[in-house]
Design a protein around this nucleic acid. Structure first.
Length: 388
DNA sequence: TCTGGGGTCCTAGGACCC
DNA sequence: TCTGGGGTCCTAGGACCC
């Protein structure tokens, strides 16, 4: 409900007044539902559903685009507020946070977990205007499922020792990490509920689903989750992709789009003071087949020029293998590092010296100009040409 | 019905090294 | 003449999450 809440706060007289609200759809006309209000969900509308289908199920609904910037801002506000209530906070996504309250038991007023949760809920509502649901447990997995039961806008705490018992009420498909594929593979073996699976030996689960997955599932259905709340998790990848209003068939048009996307990835890379060694280009063909190509460089890069240069070669590879209209193009970077820049100028025989000092300087200068004078003030040559 | 955009994690196979 | 065993890194694809 997070996106719905933010859309309503932004437009109290429009989106704020309609009971039947869908957020998503996007201007491309090819969108899906990101979030829908509860009355809309009663019609069978779910997130991820194509907007067209959602509107057939619920013709009276209003569709508004995702207010991305406002959502990020509001998410940060929620995170900041949470830091005032808990020592360890981890943002798991734009609308999901884990708090580790270990060590607070003996603080005055911190003895009763459900009371703390209710207090946090009320504070958040008044400080950020966002209504949240909170689940509490000794295990992350159980806390998350408890939060799901508390929706919309409530609190649910599973007392220590009751984790395994709590799990018995769920279907396997409700367990985070069990998606459609694993769920149907489980049901083919007659396993639909947690109760069903509790009767199966670990050996069999491992034989059926592989050693890692089997052991993982064996623990999950018993409410055991060894993962910790880690506030310092570092970013692993950055990407930008776009689905076109109509499919693109011309290599030139695709190259233009790749350039645009490279700028966006480059900017967030530099904003986070990171550099990347691996560059990946992704294409989704007209028939929805998704293909990717990647290249790992010896030295990390950060400039738009380097991203585009490598990306263009990867895109050519992909297009040579299969040249049919593309509905989506994306570029991403991974293998991120904060290591200081080492100038590669003068390195002989270095086949992937794809970035020069000049490339870095140009990118940094453009960043500064935009920060100072606004978004539209400078535009790289490729886009200028595109306009004429 | 016609499928978004941002991510994380896992796996299998191959190249390469000692 | 017929081919080890351990390891790391890279690539492509896919499942899954919000």
């Amino acid at each position: 409900m997070f996106y719905v809440q933010v859309a309503r706060l932004l437009d109290p007289d429009g989106a704020g007044r309609t009971e039947l609200l869908i957020v998503g759809g996007s201007a491309t006309g090819r969108g899906v539902v990101t979030s829908a209000s509860y009355p809309v969900r009663a019609f069978g509308v779910r997130s991820g559903m194509p907007t067209g289908q959602a509107l057939r199920l619920c013709p009276d609904a209003t569709v508004v685009p995702v207010p991305r910037g406002a959502c990020l801002q509001r998410s940060r506000a929620v995170g900041d507020a949470l830091h005032r209530h808990a020592p360890v906070v981890q943002a798991a996504s734009i609308d999901e946070f884990y708090l580790d309250l270990t060590g607070t038991e003996r603080l005055p007023g911190y003895a009763d977990l459900a009371a703390i949760a209710s207090h946090i809920r009320e504070s958040l509502l008044s400080e950020t205007e966002i209504s949240v649901s909170i689940g509490g447990s000794t295990q992350r997995l159980v806390a998350k499922l408890a939060a799901n039961l508390a929706k919309p806008g409530g609190v649910r705490v599973v007392v220590p020792g009751q984790e395994a018992e709590f799990m018995r009420q769920f279907d396997l498909s409700q367990i985070p990490g069990v998606g459609p594929t694993l769920a149907s593979s489980l049901s083919r073996r007659g396993l639909v509920t947690v109760e069903d699976a509790l009767g199966v030996d670990q050996v069999w689960l491992e034989r059926w689903f592989g050693p890692a997955r089997g052991a993982w599932l064996y623990r999950r259905i018993r409410g055991r989750d060894s993962s910790r709340v880690d506030p310092h998790e570092s970013r692993k990848s950055i990407s930008s992709e776009r689905t076109f209003f109509t499919d693109l068939s011309s290599d030139d048009d695709l190259a233009d789009q790749l350039f645009r996307l490279s700028l966006s990835v480059g900017r967030s890379l530099r904003k986070q003071e990171l550099r990347a060694r691996t560059i990946t280009v992704k294409v989704r063909d007209r028939d929805f087949k998704t293909r990717s190509a990647s290249r790992t460089l010896k030295h990390p890069v950060e400039s738009d020029a380097a991203l585009y240069h490598v990306g263009e070669a990867l895109l050519s590879d992909l297009r040579e293998r299969r040249r049919i209209p593309a509905r989506l193009l994306g570029i991403g970077v991974s293998n991120l590092t904060t290591d200081p820049v080492v100038s590669q100028l003068g390195l002989f025989g270095d086949d992937d010296a794809v970035e020069s000092d000049r490339d870095r300087n140009v990118a940094r200068t453009l960043d500064r100009l935009r920060a100072r004078f606004g978004e539209g003030v400078v535009m790289p040559a490729r886009m200028v040409k595109e306009r004429s």
